[in-house]
């Protein structure tokens, strides 16, 4: 059976620290756009930590919610792409072929979660920052759409290693960069086809809900609600 990768985000554990945000930059060669471009709304954060204020002083609350590509089973970003650059893989991932993308940005408009980011300019790395670039991840050129891949390079590497060692994958063995960096373990990644995996068990939790589920995207990321104090 092919894997079906999914993620659980425990909002009761997430502290909003943003380690996942920087970890994703470090792993996935996401460019730093700089202040001028950031001011124009071109900053790229494949995973972002949304924060919402609720109430007024002194009865004020604040909620954090990490949002990354939800790897929708019915992904609106896929059918609209004229070149198949945004497509579905056998493992249920929403994958992006940068070479095929011609930059219509239609997928980004169609994505209800606004998790797709566009290369408005060619990326630059001031030397020697380029030496940090991860050789397992393509650098995206101008005019190309990009987004969270569930760290596909790590998935492939681990799958290949598992195959070479002729064994099956252990739950928790494979961690995307954001998951690996999350100290309170708010992010859990794994195989939804394995009913015993931690992510499967958490997906069945009563606290679980899916973001914008009513849009019909069938996301594979499940959010475990912040638990109110008993």
């Amino acid at each position: 059976m092919p894997h079906r990768w999914g993620m659980a985000v425990d909002l009761d554990r997430c502290t909003g620290c943003e380690a996942c945000v920087v970890a994703c930059h470090a792993e996935n060669n996401i460019k730093t756009v700089g202040d001028a471009q950031a001011a124009r709304g071109r900053a790229m954060h494949w995973i972002r930590v949304e924060r919402y204020w609720d109430g007024e002083f002194p009865d004020v609350r604040l909620k954090f919610r990490p949002v990354l590509c939800q790897q929708c089973d019915a992904a609106p970003c896929e059918p609209v792409c004229p070149t198949f650059a945004s497509h579905h893989t056998d493992e249920g991932l929403n994958a992006q072929i940068y070479n095929r993308c011609i930059g219509t940005r239609y997928c980004a408009n169609a994505c209800p979660y606004n998790v797709r980011f566009f290369n408005f300019f060619n990326p630059t790395w001031e030397k020697p920052l380029h030496l940090q670039l991860n050789p397992d991840v393509s650098v995206r050129e101008v005019g190309v759409m990009e987004k969270c891949t569930f760290c596909i390079q790590r998935i492939k590497a681990t799958e290949q290693q598992v195959e070479a060692e002729n064994r099956s994958l252990k739950d928790g063995e494979l961690k995307p960069a954001c998951v690996q960096s999350c100290a309170p373990m708010a992010l859990v990644f794994g195989d939804l086809n394995d009913p015993e995996s931690q992510v499967s068990r958490l997906s069945r939790s009563g606290r679980g809900e899916r973001l914008l589920e009513d849009v019909g995207t069938q996301p594979k990321v499940v959010y475990l609600k912040h638990q109110a104090q008993a």
Binding site: A23, E27, L129, N134, Q180, S181, A183
Partner: peptide, 29 residues
């Protein structure tokens, strides 16, 4: 060096890093 991760055996940070620790590699480059 390409990426810093938390040392999973380390008793303090137990495999994780804070955002600053994630960015520490940019000190080098």
């Amino acid at each position: 060096a390409k990426k810093l991760e938390g040392n999973p055996t380390h008793p303090v940070n137990q495999g994780a890093l804070c955002p600053r620790g994630q960015a520490a590699i940019q000190v080098t480059y």
